[in-house]
Write a protein that binds this DNA or RNA. Structure first.
Lengths: 160, 160
DNA sequence: TTATATGCAAACGCTTTGCATCACG
DNA sequence: CGTGATGCAAAGCGTTTGCATATAA
């Protein structure tokens, strides 16, 4: 099943109606390779000439956040963005600081490290969050090429 | 030297004036064991009957953030708060979800883990951030006592 | 027919900005 | 004097809410 389908399914499984508006949000969200804001969705909806209210988008995103289908991210700039992600396992995010592309990273060894830190400080850890920012393979290549200067097309940006 | 002094010194070293207002902010910030918001400082200033403008507080916090004397934290709730911290080395934050107390955590092994994740995903990592939330020793003890029920005074909160 | 979902616009909280004034170097 | 700092109030931005309407179970 595609991602849009998975999101809609998550809604239904949780007992919410898969209304046309929510399907639209699912679709817009799924079409995103990276992070996005509520305003982005609104804007894209507007471009496609679909009528959807600001509040509806926010409410849909809240829902999807509860269902862990999307997660709210804090960018280094301090602003917020959403990313689609895997609802089924604890993970963290790797975010491209150039194109915004995001992918899930398994918790892996981090759990052990977190435990250790908790023990060392006498804290009873309840939650932890790791966020990684950097250039994704495509953007890193583009950046190198641009720096090398020889082959790079100018002004191009790598966008997922 | 005390923390207020250290903050003021950091301002001066960076070529900023240590004005009365900025000293006040330094003092308010240093008096905080945990995280705080601009509004908190404003409120405490008001209680002490000192006249300081909203904008001034925000501007001072911006400055201190640049100097890495404070850091802006994203709480699980999605809201922002500041914490005082060590400007001199890369670290992360351990925050008590009950009393808000915060302490620095050395990066330690995390650097290695971050490298590895970057390599595995082909990302050129530029920055990473780890945030840990849980009960500090005092609050954990209080919580346990309250749960046990026998000895705990009711309604008390542990505040640093 | 009852619960849910939606749109709109107003309210909100937090933060920034414009601008005149003030203090320091 | 000139640059930097401040206060105030207004503007800005992202998000939430109240409420009447519309839609689905």
């Amino acid at each position: 099943m595609n991602q849009t389908g998975r999101i809609i399914q998550a809604l239904e499984r949780a007992g919410y109606q898969a209304t046309p508006n929510r399907r639209l949000v699912a679709q817009l969200v799924a079409a995103t390779g990276g992070h996005f804001t509520a305003a982005d969705l609104l804007e894209r909806g507007r471009l496609e000439r679909v009528n959807i209210g600001r509040a509806t988008v926010f409410r849909a995103l809240d829902l999807l956040t509860d269902l862990r289908v999307v997660e709210r991210l804090d960018l280094p700039s301090g602003s917020h963005a959403y990313v689609v992600c895997d609802p089924d396992e604890h993970h963290h995010h790797l975010v491209c600081s150039s194109c915004g592309h995001s992918e899930d990273v398994a918790d892996g060894e981090l759990a052990r490290l977190v435990d250790e830190i908790g023990r060392r400080h006498g804290y009873q850890i309840e939650a932890h969050r790791l966020e990684l920012f950097g250039l994704c393979p495509a953007c890193a290549t583009a950046a190198t090429a641009a720096a090398g200067g020889a082959t790079a097309a100018t002004g191009e940006e790598t966008v997922h």
